[in-house]
Design a protein around this nucleic acid. Sequence first.
RNA 1: GGGGAUAUAGCUCAGUUGGUUUAGAGCACCUGCCUUACAAGCAGGGGGUCGUAGGUUCGAAUCCUACUAUCCCCA
Length: 875
Amino acid sequence: MSLATKYNPSDIEDKWYKHWMEQKFFASKPDPKKEPYTIVIPPPNVTGVLHMGHMMNNTIQDVLIRRARMQGKEACWVPGMDHASIATEAKVVNMLKEKGINKNEITRDEFMKHAWEWKEKYGGIILQQLKKLGASCDWDRERFTMEEDMSAAVIEVFVDLHKKGYIYRGTRMVNWDPEGQTALADDEVNFKEVQGKMYHIRYQIEGSDDHLIIATTRPETIMADAAICINPNDERFTHLKGKKAIIPLINKAIPIIEDDYVDMEFGTGCLKVTPAHDINDHEIGLRHNLEVIDIIADNGKLNDKAQILVGEDRFVARKKIAKLLKEKDQLEKEEDYTNNVGHSERTNAVIEPKLSTQWFVKMEELVKPAYENVMNDNIKLIPPKFKNTYKHWMENVRDWCISRQLWWGQRIPAYFLPDGDFVVAQNDEEALQLAKEKTGNQDLKADDLKQDEDVLDTWFSSWLWPISVFDGFKDPDNEDFNYYYPTNDLVTGPDILFFWVARMIIAGYEFKGELPFKNVYLTGIVRDDKGRKMSKQLGNSPDALGLIDKHGADGVRVGLLFSAAAGNDLLFEEKLCEQGWNFGNKIWNAYRLVEGLEVKEKDTPIEAMKARDWFEARFQDALREINDHFSKFRISDALMTTYKLIWDDFCSYYLELVKPPYGEAIDKETYEATITFFEDILTILHPFMPFLTEEIWHQITDRGDKDCVIVNHWPIEKDYDQAILHDAKTAFELVSQIRNIRASKGISPKEALTLHVKTKSEMIYQEYISVIDKLANIEELAFTTEKIDQAVSFFIGSDECFIPMEGTIDVEKEKEEIQKELDYNKGFLKSVKKKLENERFVSNAPAQVVEMEKKKQADAEAKIKTLEDSLANLG
RNA sequence: GGGGAUAUAGCUCAGUUGGUUUAGAGCACCUGCCUUACAAGCAGGGGGUCGUAGGUUCGAAUCCUACUAUCCCCA
């Protein structure tokens, strides 16, 4: 059976994924004889589809988990999803709307039934997509943050924190989404530049004909004004101090107060203070004890406190107010104004700052161990530059608003008594019991208690993820939890360092007294070639599955990893995936060469013996480097070292050296060594390119179902011959030089050449002549103590080499080249001499460094001398 | 407004406690090759004085200061 000349990933990828699943290679169970290696997936949003960022960070996780598995660890990668309250609820509401059902007209239970149906039907596409990428998760362990046990953990934690006094109710200016009818976290708000208007409104001063002018983008909120604020240093308004201003249209007098907050440069220097509808105004209000008048209802319409335009939408009201003001001649002017307006990430509605009662977690105490254990590197952030960011956040941590006005999520386990007091309990019965104790009223019934309508923030589930996926709350002493927790590495994006990572660390210490993971690898953010973050709005994100179809999963994985230094954003170019495929194709063809060889019992040629010895050492050399890169999470570098080992060393040198002349057979010994090397290479490449390596692994020979590269053992580091690497490097450099001469002189590789060498150590040349011959077609090697006339010359270290070339030498060009090299060496010598002539260098620098400089000087001087001689010889 | 990060070849990045040459890699580029595994390939080559200005040091891409530019986070 002959192999296709081009590697076609789609022929094999599904086949091997299925095989791995059937053989249960991804499955893990506690094995005390083995060291556990655990990763929990950053749970993707249940509504999500695979995008570049997911591919990036899941590829990294897969590389880590596959390598750990090959190293003989009990590798466990737990997959799963979070329930994404807001996004999912929005999807379900839309779905219902299409069916003609209004969320407000159905019960909570009915809604939840629809939501679960939606989840079962449409949720979790992303996990199927991860399989295409090759993700070797233990799918039997898949978890979901809304499933029963995980939810129970969330409730348990809420109750526990409440008991400890960390949970409180508070009034807070929240980002209110009037369309989604919920408060949003800051990170769920997108700021967009919006073309609006700045309205200049005239407020009359009480008891005078004088007036002041305020500039605002939100005239519809004037009815909620509690004061006018001026800067105490603003001399323009000294005369207004202590007076009152009258709100137009409703003719209400409000005080004129003074506060440094007011920017004298901005607007008119007079600020209307609306404590209920602006976060900064709210703070001013607190400082000056101002009345809070909330005139906007939850649905974004003006309520009766507004007195006028009651029931109008805020944007409609804005226009109408402007018109009314104009009619009363109280609108000084309108001008165009661009400002940054927050929009809901989910519904795209303009965010309304709104005062509301929410549930909060007090963070100051909780944060302490999480702070310390990152600062002292018990938990390592990779790259460490994120420690600074983390530190800053932890030192300025704010309380965490955990309530969301939604149904899809864990309902807050707080039960309100008729008098407005409340109890917090795991369930209805417990709540009733507590309520009875609290009130002393034994006649209370379940119906008298009303559970809080809100649910908990999704992060309040996912911060427990590393613990709850192993049922560490439900059953704290279970075998899985004891074995797999704490987990090893967490791979995620820096954008959720606070929202998720920091909170998991907090939860780890608070609930288990221990770190949840040892290393946090923060990947870069995938951007497009213009440096823009990939987003749905911009439509600049390539179709992830389309990329896999086009370049193969292995190609995409390699393409992503090529430019993925930890913590550095990567500018994604599809070309990189193509390069990934090219690499696969290269290996495919290397295998085609090996597979097509005819094997015979015969003597091994010297160059093949050399090649074997060299590659064995070279492989070990690279293996050490790769392991070192992995130990430092330099995944991209580990891949690049592997890439060069395979492409440059194995294909370009090793295979070229052992390849028999056309039509001849290869000796058995070399063939077998080559197959072994090939298997070694497939093994270390497997984490990066799982599909291709598995396919070739099975092409090599008929193997049993269990004999797969995915479970092959990662190579052991062995001692190796350093000298052979050094010598071979010299020989390859010589080969390169000879090829260079052929290229520049237009000499065909088929034309054999003679090589003369002027050297003190002839050994290396003698040993490697067959290698040099095979790669550079040198039929004769001679040693000389004199210059060779009519020859091109070049240096290998301080050895001078000559290739006679009668009649073909262009003397002028030759002189030019020698002169160029001479100039370089002279310049170099000068810099070395400068150092050595500096007494302070010689006396202060380590002896080793001085020694090195002296050697450099001697080498350079010798080289300069021979170059000058050559120049003289050429006349 | 507060905090953080980054600046090295055309592009994307390495450069690990300051000293292995006058700074490396991949891609791109240029030249020559359809050599029988691979033209999505092979061989060879050019290209940067390390954002700017100072400082510390025998020695700075590397440490310090200021400036400039870009990005991120928080308000």
